[in-house]
């Protein structure tokens, strides 16, 4: 595929500067035959799916405590294919968090955070925080009894975050209490503030990628394929498979709304947070009232926050990327899964 033939291929390609673009993309090499390298693109794709389906939902959603539940009920019940679009959005959100987490995890165990990729690592972690924020605020929007409970419990849990806890708690609630303001707050963050911030972070993340010739340091020994067209075609196949998965989940496994939020009702028994909070939920549930002289829950959440900071600072602590980091990452994953599983019992 010579550059000359591509250019002669069309008026549009000429104007897009297709040849230099594809040449640049082709120069970027990806190790062949490792599924972990498709997670980044899949995460980005899932984000785009959510933006698209989310924009569709805003056509009918009413961000008002009195009308929110009814409007989501209308979306799932009355608007043609509304149930599908709603399920699509919710399922792709779960898959988005899962893929983002898996993406970061594989970068961690492959020690892909090493220089010169420190900033990619940091922007990736910021993406995870914003992604969880998006999922949490989105969870509140239907203003169902479960959403109301999650808003209460979630914002209460934010209290234990050191230093900024009280502020974060008030911020999440849009006031001192969970009220209709909480819903409007969550809406603003879900559709405007967080997507805007995430777009910037993702743009920076991709920009940093283009500054390097390969996504991983010191992988020269392996067989590589060019990003374009070889990797793109493989990624396209992966994305098609992901779409099939979401489609199947959305059609066969609906996400029921439950009942409208009613502050007078007692919280549903055995309430479970969204799955990505299960581990922390279990930690809080098992927390003793006091640890080393401070509130047990506060101690554990502080410890978790400290761990998060450590993970963020990893490229600067473990500059060479030792095998021990990878082992620790696997252990941590195992512990988190164990905690989440025990929360379900």
């Amino acid at each position: 595929m010579s550059a000359a033939r591509d250019d002669s291929g069309g008026w549009l390609r000429e104007r897009l500067g297709w040849a230099p673009l594809t040449a640049a993309l082709a120069a970027y090499r990806i190790p062949r035959g490792n599924i972990a390298f498709y997670l980044g693109g899949t995460t980005l794709f899932l984000l785009l799916v959510q933006v698209a389906s989310g924009i569709m939902l805003t056509l009918y959603y009413k961000p008002d405590a009195a009308q929110a539940f009814r409007s989501v009920e209308r979306i799932t019940g009355e608007i043609e294919y509304g149930n599908l679009v709603h399920s699509f959005h919710v399922w792709s959100s779960d898959l988005f968090i899962a893929c983002l987490f898996a993406h970061l995890f594989f970068v961690l165990v492959r020690r892909g955070f090493r220089a010169p990729h420190e900033l990619s690592w940091l922007t990736g972690l910021m993406g995870l925080v914003l992604g969880v924020g998006l999922a949490f605020t989105g969870d509140i929007l239907p203003w169902s009894q479960r959403a109301y409970t999650d808003a209460r419990v979630g914002s209460e849990f934010a209290k234990y975050v050191p230093l900024v806890g009280t502020w974060l708690n008030r911020f999440l609630r849009g006031g001192d209490e969970v009220t209709s303001n909480t819903l409007v707050h969550a809406y603003g963050f879900h559709v405007a503030a967080l997507p805007a911030a995430l777009t910037l972070v993702v743009a920076l993340h991709i920009f940093l990628l283009t500054r390097r010739s390969t996504p991983v340091p010191e992988e020269a020994s392996r067989e590589t394929i060019p990003l374009y067209p070889d990797f793109f075609v493989r990624q396209a196949a992966a994305l098609t498979a992901v779409l099939v998965v979401i489609m199947t989940l959305a059609i066969f496994f609906e996400r029921p709304l439950g009942i409208a939020a009613d502050p007078r009702l007692s919280s549903p028994g055995g309430a479970m947070p969204p799955w990505y909070f299960l581990a922390i939920h279990q930690i809080l549930r098992a927390a003793p009232t006091e640890l080393l002289g401070i509130d047990g829950a506060r101690f554990l959440v502080s410890a978790a926050c400290l761990l998060g900071l450590l993970v963020a600072a990893l490229p600067f602590i473990d500059r060479r990327g030792s095998k021990a980091t990878a082992v620790l990452a696997w252990v941590l994953l195992f512990v988190l899964i164990l905690l989440a599983a025990s929360a379900l019992n």
Binding site: V233, A237, T240, T248
Partner: peptide, 18 residues
């Protein structure tokens, strides 16, 4: 689903060719 299968098939052929 069928069309997605077709797309996957053609993409696989494309990968083999590349």
């Amino acid at each position: 689903l069928g069309l997605a299968g077709l797309l996957l098939l053609t993409l696989t052929l494309k990968v083999v060719q590349l």
